Amino acid sequence: MTHTGSNPPYSFLTLHPTPHAQRHDLYVAQPQCANLALNNTFVFCVRQHPSSLTNLPEPSPAINGRASPNPFARPTSAMSILSMSASGSNYTNPSQASSGSSGSSSSKPAKLAIQTPSGKIIRLTRKTEHISSTNDADGTAWETVIKIGEKGTWRGLVLADRSARWCVFAQWECA
């Protein structure tokens, strides 16, 4: 395989700190490119590890990907996105679902989703091959396949630790 000429510029997705959702360490496996192409299908895959944080540290810069321009500021649309959005999302409120109270809250699986530019929330599902795995070194993989049919900002969401509100942890653009 050979290549001549210059490579086109490549921009990584923007990652945002999630001070209200620190129970999970999240790694965006794909797509890592900041720009999504209209009418193309993408697999959104996020690896999640339980966080071992016991206190609230300062937000750190992104290891992989572009860091949020101001790590202490959140996108205005990301600040407390209710799980029942006014934009017509059909997502069900997790506080209405039945759940047992046994076990620690830090071992609960993540609730992850992708928000479309129009506000629709699409849940990521746990990959079955990772559920039965005894090796957690790679974390738990969550994914969904989406055909990009809207221009605008697409956001990766994680449910906050103590409330039924979404926090933005990543974002992509479709021009």
Rank of each mutant, 00 (worst) to 15 (best):
K108E: 08
P17E: 07
Y27V: 11
V168G: 13
S132F: 03
Q32G: 12
Q115A: 07
T92Y: 02
I146Q: 00
P109T: 03
A160N: 05
I146A: 00
Q48R: 09
M1V: 05
F169D: 04
P69Y: 13
V145C: 11
S99A: 04
H16Q: 06
C167H: 14
L82H: 10
A97N: 14
W142A: 01
K120D: 15
S133Y: 13
A37C: 04
A164H: 00
P31A: 09
S98C: 12
P31W: 04
P69T: 15
E143W: 04
L124A: 01
H49M: 13
G65T: 03
L124I: 01
S89Q: 01
Q30H: 12
R165D: 07
E173W: 10
P9C: 07
R165Y: 05
E129W: 13
P109C: 03
C45V: 09
Q115P: 10
E173Q: 13
I131D: 06
N70C: 08
E150N: 11
G119E: 02
A67M: 05
G88M: 00
A141S: 02
I148E: 00
S133T: 15
N39C: 05
C45L: 06
L26S: 06
F44M: 01
W172L: 02
A21Y: 05
F72H: 14
S107F: 05
H130L: 13
H3Q: 08
S11Q: 15
R74Q: 08
L159V: 02
F44C: 00
R165E: 04
W154S: 09
P69N: 11
V46R: 00
F169T: 15
A170K: 10
L157R: 00
S80V: 12
V46T: 00
L38Q: 09
F12C: 12
V145Q: 14
S6N: 11
S85M: 13
K147N: 04
N64S: 12
F42Y: 11
Q171N: 12
D161N: 01
S104T: 09
H16Y: 15
T4E: 10
G139D: 05
A137E: 08
T134Q: 15
Q96K: 15
G88F: 03
R47I: 14
E173L: 15
T2E: 15
T54D: 11
L112K: 01
T134W: 07
A160E: 04
T140R: 03
G65L: 01
F44H: 01
Q48D: 02
G65F: 00
A164C: 04
S77V: 05
K111F: 01
C174Q: 03
S132M: 07
S163Q: 09
F44T: 00
R162Y: 09
E173A: 10
P17T: 08
L82E: 09
V158E: 01
N7T: 14
T92S: 03
T54M: 14
F72V: 14
P59T: 12
S77Q: 13
A175G: 05
H3L: 08
Q30V: 11
N40S: 08
S118L: 02
P57K: 07
M1G: 10
P61M: 08
R155G: 04
F12R: 14
L26V: 09
